[in-house]
Design a protein around this nucleic acid. Structure first.
Lengths: 120, 120
DNA sequence: CTGGCTAGTTAACAAAAGGTTACCGGTAAA
DNA sequence: TTTACCGGTAACCTTTTGTTAACTAGCCAG
């Protein structure tokens, strides 16, 4: 009975799932932060380091977005008892699961750009 | 034969591609409209019929969203010279290409819902 | 003549998302 | 003592996004 097929869902549930995905991954900064953490996965990513690495983001936005990502289990937050107190952020193993999704957005976006260029 | 490898792109180009995809497919109504058109692909979809089918959408939003979708070649618009003038909208063949993308958003969203439920 | 159908448009507003500036308590170097 | 770095937060402002209600013009039935 149990195969690799997705659970049966209604049309409305699918639309909700899309809405959820876009809430968690959408917006101006979330995927940029995820990408930065993934590119620097072997380094210690403190708040300030991330802010310097993700171009243009303000402390307020970075703080909010990291909290959202942590709530959604995509990023972990660890306080370190150092002299000036530091906080380390890291992408979680579960967080890696977003990359196949973003890959399909990248592919479609690149293809779409070509398609629209042809039109003009 | 098509080359299945994507063109080489920079990190910034990938982020732009994601932004483009989300611009074209994001927002509250676009995918609901696309889905409705796809579910009723063998019917004649007039403006009013779509408005009745996509629950809650106002004339203003439907008008704007259909224009955006048409600009992006995802939907076609055909004026019919009927007694009260009618306009038929249809999803284009190219428009069908969004469904693999949305499918990955649906899968991830459904999985994420389970993941978050476990947390509580 | 009235009212309803067609496909929209316009203006005014509200809500959500994002940006700017200033500031906090703590540590430490100059 | 002043200065700067750390990880933020609060107040305020702007921009984007979406909602509501009123209105257009043409055609038709009662």
């Amino acid at each position: 009975m149990k195969d690799h097929k997705r659970q049966e869902v209604t049309c409305e549930q699918e639309l909700n799932a899309i809405r959820d995905s876009l809430e968690v991954l959408g917006g101006k900064w979330k995927l940029r932060i995820m990408r930065h953490l993934n590119n620097h996965i072997n380094e210690t990513n403190t708040f300030k380091k991330i802010q310097r690495g993700v171009e243009g983001i303000s402390a307020k936005m970075l703080s909010k977005e990291l909290q959202d990502l942590e709530i959604n289990l995509l990023v972990s937050r660890t306080m370190m008892d150092t002299k000036p107190i530091t906080v380390q952020y890291a992408i979680t193993e579960y967080g890696q699961s977003v990359f196949p999704v973003t890959e399909s957005l990248v592919s479609w976006g690149l293809n779409h750009l070509q398609k629209i260029k042809q039109k003009v």
